[in-house]
């Protein structure tokens, strides 16, 4: 059994020293959420509490990941630990899949059940609260504002090309890493980060266009809510992925990561591909069909 062989090669499992970072991170999250709640309900100290929380979180991210990188460079992690990280990342991504599934579920529900039913009230019950509402998609609902839906074949198509290309460049970087061709690794990673940033810039432009010219806002009923929540959370994940890829790029430029030991790269590459697949679903189900 390979699991046992891996253990035999490793004399022991790495159990880290006591650490204050998780406690600090939780405190930061508490301040951030508490401040956000107060801000949303118009209590004055809200933004300041949020700022404090965000500061703590930022510090912990630097310090905690810094320590992990130090441990990794110091040779603390071997095959046995590496396998734990891989399993952990897989199940983390699985939970992310389910998070997006909730929003896709809301989209399907509104599009195939609630909007058509509101349009069919006259036919089904002989009376309706919303005369003239047909329930055709895209819809902002019977009382929603007028809006123009986002066309798939403008910026979204370009963004699809960008993200698919970034999937290719990250794979090119991976091959470079495996064969210890460092230039290919660094160039591939740089291209991936650049494509991610370009995607985000275009998405920001698209949102601006939607709000100022199309009347497409968060408040634009079923279409607006699902459009912005799905693409927004996706964009947030692209942002996180881009930041993580930049950190890995910084590390590879310093000579970190070897052909044998590079979970940091692979974990983020998996994450990036996951974000890619979500985008393809978005492109087909939100923009196109």
């Amino acid at each position: 059994m390979s699991a046992i062989t891996a253990k035999l090669e490793n004399p022991s499992y790495f159990v880290p020293q006591p650490t204050v970072y998780p406690f600090l991170l939780s405190s930061g999250l508490f301040a951030l959420t508490l401040g956000f709640i107060l801000k949303m309900n118009d209590y004055p100290p809200g933004p300041w509490i949020m700022l404090g929380g965000a500061g703590i979180i930022a510090y912990v991210l630097f310090a905690w990941f810094g320590r992990i990188i130090g441990e990794s460079q110091g040779g603390a992690y071997r095959d046995w630990e590496d396998k734990s990280f891989r399993y952990g990342m897989i199940w983390f991504i699985a939970s992310e899949v389910m998070f997006f599934a909730a929003f896709f579920g809301a989209l399907f529900y509104m599009r195939t059940i609630s909007v058509p039913e509101l349009g069919a009230m006259q036919a089904a019950h002989g009376t309706t609260l919303y005369p003239g509402f047909t329930g055709a998609w895209p819809s902002s609902g019977p009382k929603g504002p007028l809006f123009t839906p986002m066309s798939a074949w403008g910026i979204p198509a370009i963004n699809t090309a960008l993200l698919l290309s970034s999937g290719v460049t990250v794979t090119i970087a991976h091959w470079g890493l495996l064969q210890n061709r460092r230039f290919q690794l660094n160039a591939g990673l740089f291209a991936t980060v650049a494509l991610g940033v370009a995607f985000l810039i275009l998405q920001a432009y698209e949102y601006h266009h939607a709000y100022t010219e199309l009347g497409l806002t968060l408040a634009a009923g079923a279409y607006g809510a699902t459009f912005f929540m799905l693409t927004g959370f996706h964009g947030f994940h692209v942002t996180l992925g881009t930041i993580m890829l930049s950190v890995v790029l910084g590390r590879t430029l310093k000579g970190h990561l070897t052909p044998e030991r590079h979970f940091a790269f692979e974990g983020i590459a998996w994450y990036w591909h996951f974000v890619d697949v979500v985008w393809l679903l978005l492109f087909v189900l939100v923009y196109w069909l």
Binding site: M40, F99, A101, G144, L218, A219, G221, G224, A225
Partner: peptide
């Protein structure tokens, strides 16, 4: 399942504060 709950309460938050209509018939929600 926990991420689906997270998604549901996030939609609730958006309906409460950010003008979405996930759970309101006026906007096509339910």
């Amino acid at each position: 399942t926990i991420p689906v709950l997270a998604g549901a309460v996030t939609m609730l938050l958006a309906d409460r504060h950010f003008g979405t209509h996930f759970f309101s018939a006026a906007g096509g929600g339910d």
